[in-house]
Design a protein around this nucleic acid. Structure first.
Length: 215
DNA sequence: ATGACGATTTACT
DNA sequence: GTAAATCGTCATA
């Protein structure tokens, strides 16, 4: 493969593979490679090892619960393969893969990556604020906001198309056996009734890059 | 116009 | 373990 083809993403996920329900996609995304190509051509990438499903209008923990549709969550209503990037806690960005079908707001929050390409650039971004010591590899992308900081994902990528776009996309990666995958409640869900404990988070067992070990 | 809150992370006791 | 950081967004008025 040529360098150019590699930068474009040689083995991307097709849109039809993303046109499924959030739970199914969250499980299937484990092992996929998330790729970010910076403006200077630098390629950053990591294997997805943790993801959460946000089902849609019935899911009280979803930004689109009860059909809420605002400027912030508009991307959730886009076609499968749309990036939904939102800002939270006044500091952090989080990245989702919109799934299902256009007009139905469902998405998968990518919570952790095992970084594979561009670790030095990631470390530089993550250490932008002064810190006591150099970050370990397992601190680079082990959390939804951490991976966005490491990969340079922010407002500018909200709404972009992961299937055709040049800056952020998903490639075929490795495959994790069911025996190596755990399921449990989502992280950081406050009072959302039964949805607080619903088993909608998938993570690779014993993988040190996961943000919170799975039960 | 105002106020409460957040799909988090970090530093500190 | 607890608390601070930090501000866009949304619901209420």
């Amino acid at each position: 493969m040529t360098t150019d083809a590699r930068a474009r993403g040689g083995d991307r996920w097709a849109r039809r593979a993303l046109a499924t329900d959030a739970g199914t996609l969250a499980r299937r995304l484990l092992g996929a490679r998330l790729v970010r190509v910076l403006d200077d051509g630098t390629r950053l990438a990591g294997i997805i090892v943790e993801a959460e499903a946000y089902l849609g209008v019935e899911d009280r923990a979803s930004h689109a619960f009860a059909g809420r549709r605002t400027p912030r969550n508009e991307a959730m209503y886009g076609p499968p393969g749309t990036a939904y990037v939102y800002f939270t806690y006044g500091i952090h960005w989080c990245f989702n893969v919109v799934c299902g079908r256009a007009g139905v707001p469902a998405a998968v929050l990518v919570r952790a990556l095992e970084p594979t390409e561009g670790l030095d650039a990631m470390r530089t971004r993550r250490e932008a604020k002064p810190r006591k010591s150099m970050l370990r590899d397992t601190d680079l992308c082990s959390g939804p906001a951490r991976l966005c900081q490491a990969m340079g994902i922010d407002r500018a990528l909200n709404g972009v198309d992961l299937v055709e776009g040049p800056r952020l996309f998903i490639e075929r990666g490795t495959r994790f056996d069911d025996a190596d995958v755990g399921v449990g409640p989502r992280v950081g869900i406050g009072s959302a009734g039964a949805w607080t404990k619903a088993p909608l988070r998938w993570a690779v067992r014993r993988n040190p890059h996961v943000s919170v070990a799975i039960g």
